[in-house]
Write a protein that binds this DNA or RNA. Sequence first.
DNA 1: AGTAATTTGTTCGTATGTATC
DNA 2: AGATACATACGAACAAATTAC
Lengths: 71, 71
Amino acid sequence: MSSRQVADDLSARIRDGEYPPGSRLPSLRELAALYSVSVSTIQRVMVRLDERRLIVASQGRGTYVVDDLPQ
Amino acid sequence: MSSRQVADDLSARIRDGEYPPGSRLPSLRELAALYSVSVSTIQRVMVRLDERRLIVASQGRGTYVVDDLPQ
DNA sequence: AGTAATTTGTTCGTATGTATC
DNA sequence: AGATACATACGAACAAATTAC
């Protein structure tokens, strides 16, 4: 599974409210297990979501859905 | 140097015409050497530029600046 | 109050796979 | 066939934040 596919899936889940604004996403390791891909791939996924302004990552804390989704 | 810093720098160079539309960017290894970062970081940089619709990567060929830059 | 341990994101380095030349 | 190039995987080390003691 490619980083773009996973990014699109996660983006959709965020849009659908499965991960609402302000909530914390599963950790990179957890997401890797969820999607059966490597942590490296999930890192590229997170970079995509970051560029899409959907998440904000914080070292040591976790990755959070932004308060105000674009559009 | 972070992947976002490198991505911002490369984006600016593309915008400035240093890497014009249709041209091929240096290879991942070359870029890694240019910015004194690892190839892994450059890969995340490329994902950012891909999300910004500035480049198109082609396996086995290289990474090219898109013909029509956004905006 | 303070420090050690844990968690989590970030970067690094290497190896393997796939595609192109 | 061989070399080059991007894509994914894996493991390790690092840095920042939190938790446990």
